[in-house]
Nucleic acid binder design. Structure first.
Length: 939
RNA sequence: AGGCCCGUGGCGGAAUUGGCAGACGCAGCGGACUUAAAAUCCGCAGAGUUAACCCUCAUCCGGGUUCAAGUCCCGGCGGGCCUACCA
């Protein structure tokens, strides 16, 4: 409350008035619009800067104070870069399709089309109240048909493309098709044989049915229909990508997930595995994120080795340790491996079929719960070890995964922990074939997987005994190759990306099926395929996937002409059914940063000129968002971008040049002696300690995530109400380093609020409202002003907003007039100094800066001012006080001219009376001088 | 279990490249103003010792490299994140 004596004080009410006034004015003046090349007002002489916040997912709960942290940082940088003469693109929009919105809708009974719009409006309102300088004319949501029309279009491009391994890039599949047709190649394809089972077959292209031809092409398309073992989550009523599963449960909701084979739309992201790995070198990303992506891609080098099985043929394994081949005493195949079906077909094997059935129905959680006790069953057949010539037994066990490598392994129990545990459990032979480097004897108590020296590894034709692991590996691969039993191979952990979801709230696929089961794309001109409005959109909880779109019967069953299939592919009257799966939540966020460059374009997903200009040579200049997207979103978006790059649609190989993760904003909670947590309102403070209300027991303050149950959630709205948006922005940035996780402490907010009050008082008389200036510039303040502006600029560039603000506070503290000062023009800043100071403050606290800027007589916006020029001469002192160390301890300080070189400094210091006293007549044996830093005397 | 990151006053943090540890803010203490309080302004403020200066100790613990270590290296302890049968 403004005191009656100081009616012109900067308080929460005044802050609110100032902020809403300027926010309305900025919007009315269209001040945030960033023109594109060719637009009026576009200045081609300026360099571009594209700064992007991670796509927010507007939830019904609205913003909490964690959201604006990254947004405030990008806003500061945006405003700063504009003042530095850049054309800045800083857009905002909404990622609004997907599971959370749909689940919220199911819970509340309100259609997701309505709940998402409401949530978006609330988010936008809250963001605008903080004064963020987004170009709102570029705003869109992934649920806008004008947007998802292009999401579908890009998907179609992937559908129409294949990865050409010879050139290492994506190309139109029509090229592949005409080549196969011309050469009339023998092609392989899958035929359904009923019962959901299928078979591989092959013959010449010309002899194939169109369905068989399509089945073959599907094995090349980048977006393809394939049968995969999927992660089925009955509770969510949908399948999930591997990336969406944590500890065997769904990332959202923590429901159990089961594996089952299903025909689904996939993305051939594995084709890009090597490039996705290699190009991590092109980007300026946090090391931890690059490491996580590399680990997810999971490249391993090794060999493929073929073991002969009587009558069946070759059983192929992948191994990273082919040098241990002589130690392979048994083999294991995954329960889903074709060898199992083959074995079962040859005769009744109840134990085997029971094991396979049991392991298939076991969720991943069960597997983990049972602490990895190895289970398995022998197939009762043998394979020949190509190195030893021995027949070794073949087992099946669920510790071998069908989805990795070939789904089969050679087991080397002496040198692999898992194989060792299995061999012990089932009493299988263990043979040491790698001796330790230190020549210590193998104890047989545990597997040794470290590299060493090969031993017990020779036959009539080859010996690798005595070779190091790497030499032995090279030699055995060469030998395997020469006798046709194996070859060098690189394997990736990355698997193809499952892109279908059995949910309602997502982009429909632009695809239809005819009665033969062939799929046909919807023509570009017929896009978007609109999501039909469904009253009952709830997922169907069941043991088998039932997509809710199936309920839109009239929409599903249509004709090729109605659906928009090119008449040259299918006659318009042909009855077809639409694809009823939808795309996953990730789809829309894979390319939104491109759409921002040219959001209204109705003929392309992004205009070429706009894309070339804003994306430049390296893509988005700075991308800020949470580390939780380190793998999923960032990997998917890179993959889409690379496809578009190959197809000539975008100009950069990578989408995001520089990435930065802001830390999490946590909160305080209180912990009892037994470790249980107490909500914030159940505790009172008493002389620096905290006691639980009621029991009066001492509790300790701990850092915890903000959560409803702990009653420690803080929303931007309440902070804005109490202090204003500028204070909130300042506090969020002042808390600590942007990258760190830091606790919200409501008590500390007062500090930055008081700072803004001092800024205000520096320029405005609180009693009269008159503007105040110093009559003349104080040279010390002038010097510090230059230094402050210099430091603020440097700190913003490295996103160290906290120290930039500290520098601004220091300056204001120095310039503040003492209460006793009778004539305000005896202190403070001159109008010219005030102008420059406000420029430096404006990126952080744009509203108060704008208000004062106008009060001191400026008419245009402070945001369009140029960043103040710093006089280099003001940054250096004439004299420096150097610490003088004797034996490495600071004992004195000596003033030296700042330009003095080492010899001069030594002379001055040794001549100093205090130094001579401390030396007591001793002569230094050694003198270390670091100009501008310190001097160290050793006696 | 493995990989990565982190550990600085009562609290949030600063120290950008190995060079004066603790900037700035919160909380605290003292003073000025006031009849008084709030607000404001001016100071103090790592710990020990001291009237004060000095001095000693101090960046989780223990070693090491260096003229010099919060910063680099090795080994512990504590916390966080990621991965988790990937052959």
């Amino acid at each position: 409350m403004a005191d009656f004596e100081t009616p012109h004080r900067y308080d929460a009410h005044r802050a609110g008035d100032i902020e809403t006034h300027w926010q309305a004015k900025w919007i009315a003046d269209d001040a945030f619009r960033a023109p594109n090349p060719g637009d009026p007002g576009f200045d081609a002489t300026r360099p571009k800067y594209y700064i992007l916040d991670m796509f927010p997912y507007p939830s019904g709960a609205g913003l909490h104070v964690g959201h604006p942290e990254g947004y405030t940082a990008t806003d500061i940088l945006t405003r700063y870069k504009l003042m530095r003469g850049f054309n800045v693109l800083h857009p905002m929009g909404w990622d609004a399709f997907g599971l959370p919105a749909e689940q919220y809708a199911v819970q509340t009974g309100v259609h997701p089309a309505i709940t998402t719009r409401t949530a978006i409006d609330a988010f936008r309102r809250q963001l605008q109240r903080l004064g963020f300088r987004y170009d709102w004319s570029r705003e869109f949501g992934t649920i806008d048909p004008d947007y998802y029309r292009w999401t579908q279009s890009i998907w179609l491009r992937a559908y129409r493309s294949y990865y050409d391994a010879s050139t290492g890039r994506a190309r139109p599949i029509a090229e592949l098709e005409s080549k196969i047709e011309k050469e009339d190649r023998v092609i392989s394809f899958t035929v359904d044989v009923g019962d959901g089972k299928s078979q591989q077959s092959e013959q010449k292209w010309s002899a194939c049915t169109p369905l068989q031809q399509q089945s073959h092409l599907d094995t090349h398309r980048l977006a393809y229909l394939g049968v995969q073992t999927v992660n089925w989550c009955p509770a969510l009523g949908t399948v999930l990508a591997n990336e969406e599963i944590i500890d065997g449960r769904s990332e959202r909701g923590g429901h159990p997930v089961f594996r089952m084979p299903l025909r689904q739309w996939m993305f051939r992201i594995t084709a890009y595995a090597q490039r996705l790995l290699d190009d991590l070198d092109l980007v300026e990303w946090p090391e931890s994120t690059r490491a996580m992506q590399a680990a997810w891609i999971g490249r391993s080098e090794g060999a493929e080795v073929r073991f002969a099985v009587e009558e069946f043929g070759d059983l192929t394994v992948f191994t990273t340790r082919p040098d241990t081949l002589f130690g392979a005493t048994y083999m294991v195949v995954a329960p889903e491996h074709p060898l199992i079906a083959w074995t079962l077909a040859r005769g009744e094997r109840k134990d085997l079929s029971q094991y396979v059935e049991w392991s298939r129905n076991r969720s991943d959680i069960d597997r983990q719960a049972e602490s990895r006790e190895k289970t398995g069953v022998s197939l009762g057949i043998s394979a020949r070890n190509p190195a030893t010539g021995e027949l070794i037994p073949v087992w099946t066990a669920d510790y071998v995964l069908m989805a990795y490598g070939t789904g089969a392994i050679m087991a080397v129990p002496a040198h692999d922990e898992r194989d060792f545990a299995f061999a012990k459990r089932f009493e299988l032979p263990i043979r040491c074939v790698v001796a330790a480097i230190d020549a210590s004897a193998w104890t047989g108590e545990r597997a040794t997987s470290e590299p060493g020296i090969a031993c017990n590894s020779k036959n009539d034709r080859i010996s690798i005994d005595g070779l190091s692991t790497s030499d032995a590996t090279a030699k055995i691969i060469e030998w395997l190759h020469s006798c046709g039993r194996g070859l060098r191979r690189v394997n990736f952990r990355l698997r193809d990306w499952l892109f279908s979801r059995q949910r309602y709230w997502g982009e429909p696929f632009p695809i239809v099926f005819d009665e033969r089961g062939m799929h046909f794309p919807v023509a570009e001109s017929a896009l978007p395929v609109q999501l039909p409005s469904l009253a009952d959109y709830a997922p169907v909880q069941s043991d088998h996937p039932v997509p809710p779109l199936g309920k839109a019967k009239e929409w599903v069953h249509t004709t090729a002409g109605e659906a928009g299939v090119d008449p040259s592919m299918l006659a318009p009257s042909t009855p077809v059914r639409r694809e009823i799966n939808t795309m996953p939540g990730w789809a829309g966020s894979c390319w939104y940063y491109l759409r921002y460059c040219d959001p209204k374009n109705s003929s392309r997903f992004v205009g070429k000129d706009a894309e070339r200009y804003w994306m430049g040579d390296r893509g988005v200049d700075l991308y800020i968002g949470g580390a939780e997207h380190a793998v999923l979103h960032l990997l998917y978006a890179r993959f889409w971008h690379k496809m578009l790059f190959d197809l000539g649609e975008v100009g950069t190989p990578e989408p995001f040049a520089k990435l930065f993760h802001q830390g999490m904003i946590t909160s305080f909670a209180f912990e009892r002696a037994d470790g249980s947590l107490i909500p914030t309102d159940g505790v009172r403070e008493e002389a620096g300690t905290w006691r639980e209300i009621g029991t009066n027991e001492l509790v300790t303050r701990v850092i915890a995530k903000m959560s409803k149950s702990l009653k420690n959630v803080v929303t931007p709205d309440e902070v804005v109400e109490e202090y204003g948006a500028d204070t909130l922005r300042l506090y969020e940035m002042y808390m600590g380093p942007l990258a760190d996780s830091k606790p919200w402490n409501t008590r500390d907010i007062a500090g930055v609020f008081r700072f803004l009050q001092r800024v205000w008082r520096l320029a405005v008389d609180e009693r009269t409202g008159a503007v105040l200036f110093a009559r003349e510039a104080n040279p010390d303040i002038e010097r510090q002003l230059h230094r402050t502006i210099h430091k603020v600029a440097q700190d913003i560039e490295r996103l160290a907003m906290n120290t930039a603000i500290a520098a601004l506070i220091e300056l204001v503290n120095v310039a503040t007039r003492p209460t006793q000062m009778k004539d305000p023009s005896d202190g403070g800043l001159t109008v010219d100094q005030m102008r420059r100071f406000l420029c430096a403050l404006a990126p952080f606290a744009p509203h108060i800066a704008e208000e004062l800027w106008h009060r001191i007589g400026e008419s245009s916006s402070v945001a369009s001012a140029s960043w103040p020029v710093v006089d280099e001469k003001q940054l250096v002192d004439d004299m420096l006080e150097l610490p003088v160390q004797i034996q490495g301890k600071v004992r004195a300080r000596v003033a030296v001219p700042s330009g003095a070189d080492a010899a001069e400094i030594e002379k001055i210091v040794l001549a100093d009376r205090k130094v001579q006293e401390l030396l007591e007549g001793r002569t230094p044996k050694k003198v270390i001088v670091v100009p501008k830093r310190m001097i160290n005397l050793l006696v």
